[in-house]
Nucleic acid binder design. Sequence first.
DNA 1: ATTAATATTAAACGGTTGTTTTAAACTTGG
DNA 2: CCAAGTTTAAAACAACCGTTTAATATTAAT
Lengths: 231, 231
Amino acid sequence: MSEEKQKTKDRLLDAAENLFASKGFDDVSIRELAAAADVNVAAVNYHFQGKENLFQQVILRRFVVQRDNTLKALENILSDASNKPDIALVIQTLVEEYLKGTLSSPGGGSFMLLVAREMQSQNHHGSTTFFKEMVMPVFQAYSMALMDVRPCLRQEQINWILASIVGQIHHFIMRWHKKKSFDAQSEEVQIMVRVFPALGLSVDDYITQVTNHITAFSTAAIDSLYPEVSP
Amino acid sequence: MSEEKQKTKDRLLDAAENLFASKGFDDVSIRELAAAADVNVAAVNYHFQGKENLFQQVILRRFVVQRDNTLKALENILSDASNKPDIALVIQTLVEEYLKGTLSSPGGGSFMLLVAREMQSQNHHGSTTFFKEMVMPVFQAYSMALMDVRPCLRQEQINWILASIVGQIHHFIMRWHKKKSFDAQSEEVQIMVRVFPALGLSVDDYITQVTNHITAFSTAAIDSLYPEVSP
DNA sequence: ATTAATATTAAACGGTTGTTTTAAACTTGG
DNA sequence: CCAAGTTTAAAACAACCGTTTAATATTAAT
């Protein structure tokens, strides 16, 4: 594989990431992809053996980074000997890293919306390995962390808790993207911002507010339902 | 409109509800709809002037019932003079009615999955009136109820709380449908049930457990973050 | 019974989809 | 420099999409 021709694949991957993220798998045609990447339509099948495979490559390329970021962020707070982490910090780390990767990744992409979308669709474009390689490690690492900072928690309780947290995260991600899918001056956006003012903020401020809310909400719930046993 | 010919419209609506709910708007073709309802392909356009309109009719027919059920359930607990409702009861009513309508509606349909799916998609098949007529009344009624049982709550706090609750509800709905979209003996289902045992239960038991969790989780959070001011 | 409106049917239309073909343009190693 | 292999390009392919047409069948009313 030549040096210059690798650029074609990369341009295709970049264009695909943006288009898939903003319109979903089905609503992006190969011709649209080719035009955005400024390559021929046949290039998609030549380099990726089909649209389906291109999609998986896109997901994989980004999600590996996201997985490692999320795991690294957890390691950072756990290994910081200066202050012992508590429940709130663990949750805040998970939520913040998730939102950042989804709403304000450096590539400007909202690639993880793909994951949220496909996880909730009944098409199985991704394979089981995606779940095993990408989701499970993060899930298990944060399960461990939660058990460390709150030893009385049992595994099944943590499963319920994490489901509630991830559910909230997805919901706020979807709200943001739903708003962005309309014209900024449209009546729909006006209503949405009026009902939920945080949607009128910048991405970073939105992430901050949502992170603070989910963290406070979930931490309060856990502290109340599963209080720390006094030493 | 003749008596017998109304049956054609109804058969089409029923078939559309099931198919749309299980595959989404884009993944259902008119020919597929016609075959399932045992009518000609042209019948869709003849009776409903297009696929888009049929979809909206499907949503409307069911969601009016769901909206009224949800509002009626709230009225019931509010007007029951024998025991004054608390936060937990209001939340439980919302969650339970939502889940029942989505996962075990009498028609066997999972029509409200449609709403969840379309709310989270970036296509705007439904109109703004759907939001105003169907979502807002329920939202406002439950906002009022929460203010009644916990007067210290301000509107914006309620918005955040309801977002967290609805986010959790949607997530558990999606988990259930995701599981149902696989073969019962598939490896995927085995993994899902192992990680989250509640998915192995019957629908009704699943609804009960999820309702209890979301109610307990959210009530604990609210009680801790916004405690009742002592009289 | 005849007429007019309504409902159903099979066939076709124009368009888009993902993919493949065929050939020309490159890059690269001897 | 040239032949071998790799990458691009335009065009065609087969399948499917939502919709429409035009003819037929059914119903309702006079």
